[in-house]
Nucleic acid binder design. Sequence first.
RNA 1: GGGGGGAUGUCCGAGUGGUUAAAGGAGACGGGCUGUAAACCCGUUGGCUCUGCCUACGCAGGUUCGAAUCCUGCUCCCCCCA
Length: 407
Amino acid sequence: MSASGNDQHTPPAEAIGNPAAAAAWLERNVVESLPSGGLKRKLEQSVAESRPLRVKLGIDPTAPDIHLGFTVVLGKLREFQELGHQVVLIIGDWTARVGDPSGRSATRPQLSIEEINANAETFADQALKVLRSDRLEVRRNGEWLDMPLDELFGILRTTTVAQVTEREDIANRLRSGTPVSLLELLYPVLQAYDSVAVEADVELGGTDQHFNLLLGRDLQRAFGQQEQVAIELPILTGTDGERKMSKSLGNYIGITEAPADIYGKTMRVPDSALDEWYGLLVGNPPSEVLTPRDAKRQLARELVTRFHSETAAAEAESHFDRVIVRGEMPEEIEEGHIASDSEATVHLPAVLSELFGISRSEARRSISAGGVKLDGAPVAELDLVARELDGKVLQLGPRRHRRIIVD
RNA sequence: GGGGGGAUGUCCGAGUGGUUAAAGGAGACGGGCUGUAAACCCGUUGGCUCUGCCUACGCAGGUUCGAAUCCUGCUCCCCCCA
């Protein structure tokens, strides 16, 4: 495993310049590649015309960071790059305003334009943690979706209501009486039109994108273009080991998260999900000589190394051993300032509330449950003399610490 | 435009005048245990100046000793008809 963590995306020698071998390698861990044989034909065409394929991936900036599940798709894009093809990364600043209903049981919360733009800003940077910076074209779909109505009408004519309402997620919502807005029905058509706009040869997505990917082919045909190949990748399970990794379920690991968080969250993943995580994120199963614990530690190190550095991984591991395994204080503890006369009485719930951002009632509950410690010893009193707190480490639960400074 | 149904805590969901801060579940948090931040067990889960007080069942008002529960108006959602 290299520091870049991208060995898994390096093509074997026989795949270079050989469409059949290249297609087989690219399709080795995908769930679906449609139509069957389509990718090989595209690759042959690429060789014949000596032109790189345009491989599209759309990503809506609905959350501020890219999570691990998404890197599975990015990794596949990287493989196309390694074979010399052109990646077209579409930041869906306009589709984000519409909201993708795929796999959803309710309408997405509306994001403000400011949030969308702020997220869009960082997305390309984050994607570069997996993608190469050459053979990469980054576009925003506002470039073409901000169109006159008559053009939009032309696009909407291509698709029927039955098509967009028959898909399972939408059909379920209609059946259960959950609201579905017209805008949501529009979404797949707009995403499909992105394929037309960038003249995609291949589009990637998770299996939840099945409908959207195939509709892209329909739109391209309607606009007189060659149809793209649709490649569907597996969806990574979240840190709960059960549901798909997603921002809204809170079971995700963002690739820009702090090393200690990536390491810790990875350790929290149930052992039962280990094989899947190795397969999708590392590209090979864990070594059989490793116990589940050590396999998980190795995965955690590998992930921190990939998104930060080897040094950060070592530090994250020792932090984990120290704070979680041995229950000791972290090496570095953030200071927490409280303003008080040193002889005055301070109300502990108020201090906890201020330093850790919880409510005072919540703080009281934690205290009575024995979850609040001062220099490692549980505290029961609600009011303390400020002097007794000064310089001590206040701890909330197993992993939140602050060194108190009385000003 | 007409008719019918609905809006409950982070989420799902019970509750149709009186120990209801609101059953149950999920999630989350804390404790125990553990190789782990898993699993399992236990506890907590609106706020606060905390043996009490305040706020809360879409919004506004009303009836009542007392309402999430009854009435009126409004907003939003779903279904059917047009």
